[in-house]
Computed example of a mutant assay.
Amino acid sequence: MSSVASFDLIEARLRDQWSTTPLVFENEDHPLPDEPAPFVYVEMWGIPGGFDQASIGSGARDDNLWREHGTLDLHVMVPNNTGSRAGRTYAGQLIDIFRGKDLGTLTFLEASVGEGKPGREFANYWAMTASISWRRDQ
């Protein structure tokens, strides 16, 4: 789970920059249509360990630089048996929204499509995942 500060910045950027398909964030209601249609399921999680102290010597411990690390997973859901091209295309477009960007206190780092894992089937859908690592300094 990422911090609220990180979640809010990422959610705002996605909602502002992505209108190609519906976005569904963790634990949001999204009734699936009778005819499967693409959508993006968004997961944000912090790398184990949460916040790391990134500096020393600033007096009280809380006065030092603290760094949160995390990953943004964008699961592009497309109808089963329609191939992977649409999923890969959307995943690449989603990565372009974040890759190499600074967004407030967030810096987006490495990104990949599929991370060496094959797509996965979920009922009437097939998922191709775009993953983007990030860090937030406070």
Rank of each mutant, 00 (worst) to 15 (best):
Q93C: 01
E43R: 12
L74N: 00
E110P: 02
K101L: 05
F39R: 03
S58Q: 13
A86G: 05
E110C: 03
R61A: 15
N81V: 10
D73K: 05
Q93W: 00
A60M: 10
L72F: 02
T89E: 14
R85V: 13
L103P: 04
N64P: 03
P79I: 07
L72V: 02
T107M: 03
Y41P: 00
T107D: 04
T105V: 12
N80R: 15
I47V: 14
V40H: 08
G87C: 03
D96H: 11
K101I: 00
R85C: 08
R99E: 15
L109Q: 03
Q53T: 12
D73V: 02
G83F: 04
L72N: 06
D62M: 10
S55L: 00
E43P: 01
V42Q: 09
F108P: 07
N81L: 09
I56M: 10
L74Y: 00
L103E: 10
L65I: 12
V76Q: 13
N64M: 04
R99D: 15
I97S: 13
G70V: 04
Q53H: 05
V42R: 05
D63H: 13
Q53N: 07
W45C: 12
D52E: 15
G50H: 07
A60T: 07
I47C: 01
P79M: 04
A91Y: 03
G57I: 06
G87T: 02
E110M: 09
L65G: 01
S58H: 08
V42L: 11
M77L: 12
I95N: 06
T105S: 14
E68L: 11
G92K: 10
